[in-house]
Simulated scan of single mutants.
Amino acid sequence: MQQLVKRNITQHIQDQKNKFPIIALTGPRQSGKTTLLKNIFKDYRYISLENPDVRAFANEDPKAFLNEYNDKVIFDEVQKVPLLFSYLQGIVDDSKIMGQFILSGSQNFHLIQGITQSLAGRVALFKLLPFDLSELNADNLLEDSFTNTCVKGFYPAIYDRDIQPSVYFANYIQTYVEKDVTELLNIKDLQAFRTFIGLCANQAGQLLNLSALANACNISQPTAKNWLAVLESSYIIYLLQPYHENFNKRLVKTPKLYFYDTGLLCHLLKIKSGKALTTNRLKGNIFENMVISEFQKQNYHNYLNNEYYFWQDSHANEVDLLKQTDDGFAVFEVKASQTITADLFKNLDRFELNASPKKVEKTLIYGGLNNQNRSQYKILSWKSIK
């Protein structure tokens, strides 16, 4: 299975395969995990635990199963047979072979649970998300219009097979999201869950309002919290946490909600074209979502282990993204505008004032195409994030 777009994570996985007995790769369904692993580990056997016959063998007789598949094996959707994790621990502890097993799974909760309980210290864990901007740029697949890019999204099949985003995402929700939901939760009313996902889309780029989500779906707050956790563990949404250091001001402590993929987000919001997005009231939120998610994707794909936050005080002064540096902060303001005006820098300046005397690196990421280095700011096109 040939990989069309080179994935940035490839080299980092190759770097670790001789240092850990197990490599684990997680990420959303259809993000390209199987293709990537088959390309990296060409001499490994590939075993999918989605296959009911294979899964039954593994569940009923794990010892015999692992005698059959005991070296240079890729186990896909391994979280479906959780008892394998403890058996793998014994095998790799005895063999001391590096890169003996490759694990892959699309349900983060069960995969991470299995690793932390049985395989801690034995696994190099990676996350593969849909394409990032630098991957598409490298293959000349990135348009100059951020509106078209947001609507198209970043899932490999859309680029590899030239599928219309509206067709792809309608099937994605029905086939994958609801499949994960029914496996993780006993939801009898899938329509209510579809409504819930749509309401999450309307909150993208905003402070999470759990009570509003619960009330609108006529469910309890604990149920809404569980449903949100399922969307997180299936890599549909994530919560960006606020930075809490108090610069003598009251700070917001509620996370902001984002989608990993803006194509799915636009589909849920019924935005079907870049032209439609241009005039949509949520254009700024969707652009911000794409940019913030880009930092998350490049963080995982380049194995950086950075921690990102946003900052907002009780007067709604905020910076969209914040990262601590050795001597202060790197802060980012995200604006869909293609015209640079002095007003776009005010939140960055306000944060610098609050953070004084710590050093603050200030960057504006905007909807235009030209980069600039000014004396106090870096101005970065959305296409140039790296």
Rank of each mutant, 00 (worst) to 15 (best):
L380T: 14
I97H: 05
L322Y: 01
I115C: 00
L344K: 04
E183N: 14
L142E: 02
K323T: 05
F75S: 07
K256M: 00
M290L: 15
L119A: 04
V181Q: 02
S104E: 03
V291P: 05
L240K: 02
Q100K: 03
P130Y: 06
Q89N: 09
F345R: 05
L133N: 03
L199Q: 05
F85S: 00
Y46V: 03
W227K: 04
A330N: 11
N246S: 13
I197K: 08
Y168P: 06
Y235F: 09
L239N: 06
M290P: 04
K225R: 14
D15H: 12
Q117V: 08
Q11W: 08
N371E: 10
A336D: 05
L199F: 10
T279D: 15
G205F: 02
N289G: 11
W382T: 05
S134G: 09
I271K: 00
F310Y: 10
F332S: 04
K127S: 13
I102N: 03
K17W: 13
K152V: 07
G198D: 02
T10I: 14
K42H: 15
S356W: 10
R250I: 13
F131Q: 05
H110Y: 12
N18S: 13
N59W: 07
L322P: 00
L269N: 00
K256D: 00
N299Q: 03
T341R: 15
L184F: 00
N148E: 12
V5S: 03
K270V: 14
R350L: 15
P156G: 07
N39I: 04
I102Q: 01
A355W: 02
Y176N: 11
A58V: 06
K17F: 14
L36H: 05
P255F: 12
N347I: 07
F41S: 02
M98D: 10
P165D: 02
F57D: 07
D94P: 10
N215F: 07
Q117T: 11
F287A: 02
S273E: 01
A124S: 12
F332V: 12
N306V: 11
Q79Y: 07
R374V: 10
C150Y: 09
L207V: 08
Q338C: 11
F101E: 00
H267I: 07
L264I: 01
Y303S: 03
I22Q: 03
F57E: 06
H244Y: 13
F196Q: 06
K253D: 05
F57V: 13
V181E: 03
L88H: 07
Q372D: 09
F345W: 06
A157C: 12
P242I: 07
N18H: 15
L277P: 01
T26W: 07
N289P: 10
F295D: 01
K283Q: 04
A316Q: 13
R55P: 00
F196R: 02
A212F: 05
T339L: 11
T10W: 15
A224Y: 11
Y366Q: 01
Y258I: 04
K253R: 08
L128F: 05
R122Q: 10
R122M: 09
K17H: 14
L380K: 13
G368W: 00
F131E: 04
T147E: 10
K272A: 12
T195N: 13
L128G: 06
K249R: 11
D94H: 14
N59L: 10
I23S: 02
I22H: 06
D189F: 11
